[in-house]
Structures are given as C-alpha cells and as structure tokens.
C-alpha cells in the first residue's frame, strides 16, 4: 500500500511540473506571438522592398498574393506564392517566391520581381545552404552578383544567352562555384518564361480571387 502511495505522489509531482512548465511556455507565447508575427512580416517586407522600391507600389503587398500550384513549367515541386504589386489600382509588378531546386547543396529559396512590362525589377536570395565563401556570393552582403539581373528580360539577353558564362551565356559565375549561379540563373529564366506565357492566367486568377473576397465589388 505504502509503495503505491509513493508512486502516486511521485507521479503527481511530475504532473505538477508538467503543468507549471506548460503554463510558463504558454504565457511567453501569448506575450511574444504578436511581436514575432510582426517581425516575420517586416523581414519579408524588407526583402520585397529591396526588389521593388516602395514608391513603385501603393497596395498592401503582403496581403495581395495568389498561390500557384506546383508546376513543372516553373520548376516548382510545391505551390508557390506570387505577390501582386499595384500602383494607383493598376498592376505594376509581380514578385514570385520560388525555389531553385538544383543548388550545390539543396534548395535555394528566392524572390524574383518582374515588372508588368516583362523586365526584371530584381532578384534576392531568401535562404540557401550553399558553401560559405564560395556559393554564398549570391547574397547581397557578399557581392553584387545578384544585382546583375535587374533590368534584364526574356529578350535581353536572348534566350540562348540566359546562362552563366561557362555555358556560353552572359552571367558571371563565381570563382570556384558554377553550380550555384547556374541554378539561380535557370530559376530566374523559368520565372520570366512562365510570366511571359501565363501572365493572363495569373491576372485572371487574381481577379477571381478579389471578386470572391469582395462579392459586392462589381467593378473588379
């Protein structure tokens, strides 16, 4: 009998600490949740603003987006987000949040901003696992390489030249790393092609979505 009681008390003590611990975590979560969500929004917005200066759009970029399903033509295995930038109620640019699957060590998450006229407004790397000191030259902190995309479009350079220099294209590779820039160039090119061929569908999808959200708004 005594033994049973002993086990019971030990169990209760353990349970008590579980409750106290969970409460502590719960309270901290409550107090920090809003701040954390803010941080994440701000960090994303900062990245988006690097691609698309804030004077180029006047809508709530973070909340104006559509999702496209996993699509081979875009080289995506998962669905990806496209942010829609509007200025004075006209769509001015789209920002594709895509993954370049063929990095040297895994996926490279990036943002590709395309102006409505088909020129690139900018490209930024969000996260990657490339070799430090070699492949990470695509980060803006390390080199200006990624800025070389700005202003390029599907027709300039020509289709055949949308490659790194080693493959006969116009984009620099890094010393000691060809695979990383090759993956990035390819992913950007795919985005441009996709945008060129499916611009209409993307806009339709966006229209449909806004109409669903605001059923009263007949002007669309």
């Amino acid at each position: 009998m005594n033994n049973k009681k002993y086990i019971l008390v030990s169990g209760l003590i353990l349970g008590l600490f579980a409750i106290v611990g969970t409460t502590l975590v719960g309270i901290t979560h409550q107090t920090t949740a809003e701040k954390i969500a803010d941080n994440e929004r701000l960090a994303l917005l900062r990245k988006l603003n690097q691609i698309l200066p804030s004077n180029k759009y006047d809508n709530d970029l973070l909340h104006t987006s559509i999702n496209i399903d996993a699509d081979n033509r875009l080289g995506q295995k998962k669905s990806s987000t496209v942010y829609i930038a509007k200025r004075q109620n006209k769509i001015s640019a789209m920002i594709f949040s895509v993954i370049a699957p063929k990095g040297y060590s895994g996926e490279i998450k990036m943002l590709v901003g395309i102006n409505i006229d088909g020129t690139l407004s900018g490209v930024r790397i969000v996260s990657h696992k490339e070799t430090p000191g070699l492949g990470d030259a695509m980060e803006t902190e390390k080199s200006d390489w990624v800025l070389s995309f700005s202003g390029k479009s599907l027709h300039s350079p020509k289709e055949k030249k949308w490659k790194v220099k080693r493959d006969g294209g116009v984009f620099d590779q890094f010393t000691g790393a060809t695979i990383t820039p090759r993956a990035v160039v390819q992913a950007v090119h795919l985005c441009l092609i996709y945008f060129d061929r499916h611009k209409k569908e993307l806009l339709e999808q966006y229209d449909k979505q806004t109409k669903q959200l605001l059923p009263d708004n007949k002007t669309g």
Binding site: L14, F17, G21, L24, V25, T28, I36
Partner: peptide
C-alpha cells in the same frame, strides 16, 4: 524527467523571447 521538463520550458521561453526581441 522533472529536470528535463524545467530545462525544456526555460529554453522554449528563451527561444520565443529571442524570436520576438
């Protein structure tokens, strides 16, 4: 198990705080 619970709770709280600030 009690020690592990305490440590895990403390670390989670610190993690959330760092994420926030």
């Amino acid at each position: 198990p009690v020690f592990v619970l305490i440590i895990a709770s403390v670390v989670t709280a610190i993690e959330l705080a760092m994420n926030a600030w």
